[in-house]
């Protein structure tokens, strides 16, 4: 093992987070990129490996825990969030990650997403969104585009897709971010940011499935167009985008419009991004190419006490207020003696 320990300092390399299992995703799948970004981020975090627990559901992405050298749990379809909640509540010292997909998290397990957000359990959710069911070979998912032709919708789907970021925000998320699997550095950065957040962190990752839904994000993620078609968010900075930094967003009277300007001279009414502004986050969550650039980065970040913090706070309070003598428990109520 290449871990060096010096006076309590551990230095990991990303390879220290690889398991001895062969990775079995399709060659060229973007899941490989996310796996590497995740391992790199964990090495960067420098937390003892045994403190990490990676919990997944079912689907292509959910195989990930087997490829990690940390503790892992490959659960059942749709349920990684409550499993992770149980792990974290039972031992809040652990760093708990959820690996899930669009089917796992938004369809069969959709209910849990809502409730983990409003509880603010200190777990980090990485949603691999490829807008298709890959493991079951190509049925439409809850994020598939309306009209998409696939095996269960040969004439095109008739359902509107769900927008994961908007759903998370509506459920009370305290940390929401988005990126694309191809943006390796950005992804690593956001994983680290998610970890820093105390509470539920939701990271929406666009991920290409080249077998069943190839190129679905190409329009705005290809190297030559992404700067013009992504809006990279920075807290406290104006919403400016474009290769030449010559476009910006202006929110006015409940409407949003794109302003074009000379790069050196952005107008003053370009909206300043504030990661604590929920209305702005909602508005941004609904922006999508081609009408608008696709927002990337931290969309919302606010501080709130975490679920387990509140639970153990109440337990401490009860311990101070009431006797912890077990005999008092069974001797509560009316007790009488038979001689």
């Amino acid at each position: 093992m290449s871990v060096t320990e010096q006076e309590g300092q551990i230095t990991y390399k990303w390879t220290d987070f690889k398991s001895d299992q062969d990775v079995r995703w399709c060659p060229g799948c973007e899941d490989y990129a996310i796996l590497k970004a995740f391992q790199t981020a964990l090495a960067e975090l420098d937390i003892p490996r045994e403190k990490h627990v990676v919990v997944s559901g079912i689907g292509c992405s959910s195989r990930l825990p087997y490829y990690m050298s940390t503790y892992g749990f490959h659960g059942i379809h749709g349920r990684p969030i409550p499993i992770a909640t149980g792990v974290k509540v039972a031992n809040p010292d652990l760093v708990v990650w959820v690996i899930t997909g669009d089917g796992d998290c938004l369809s069969i397990g959709g209910n849990h997403l809502i409730h983990v957000m409003r509880r603010n359990v200190d777990i980090k959710i990485l949603l691999f969104d490829n807008r298709i069911y890959g493991l079951t070979k190509g049925q439409y998912s809850p994020t598939s585009d309306k009209g998409m032709v696939n095996r269960t919708a040969p004439m095109g789907t008739v359902e509107e897709p769900v927008e994961p970021v908007a759903l998370a925000l509506a459920s009370g998320a305290t940390f929401v971010a988005r990126t694309d699997a191809a943006y390796l550095k950005h992804l690593i950065h956001l994983i680290v940011e998610a970890h820093k957040h105390k509470g539920t962190a939701f990271l929406h990752i666009y991920q290409n499935c080249y077998v069943y839904n190839d190129g679905v994000f190409d329009d705005f993620t290809q190297r030559d167009v992404r700067d013009d078609r992504n809006l990279v968010l920075e807290h406290g900075k104006p919403l400016i985008f474009g290769k030449n930094r010559d476009k910006g967003l202006r929110f006015k009277d409940g409407m949003v419009e794109i302003a074009e300007f000379e790069p050196a001279d952005p107008p003053e009414d370009i909206t300043i991004f504030d990661e604590t502004n929920l209305s702005l986050a909602f508005a941004l969550s609904k922006l999508y190419w081609p009408r608008f650039p696709v927002p990337m980065g931290v969309i919302r970040r606010v501080e709130q006490p975490s679920f387990e913090e509140l639970i153990y706070g109440q337990i401490e309070k009860a311990k101070q207020k009431f006797s912890t003598d077990l005999n008092k428990l069974i001797y509560s109520g009316d007790v009488w003696e038979v001689k």
Binding site: P82, T85, V89
Partner: peptide, 22 residues
């Protein structure tokens, strides 16, 4: 520690997570 879960499935899977935790 008691948790009122959002449904029956999360109730049992939280308990499984807790058991895995120790």
């Amino acid at each position: 520690v008691t948790i009122q879960s959002e449904d029956e499935i999360s109730a049992i899977t939280m308990a499984i997570g807790a058991a895995y935790s120790g």
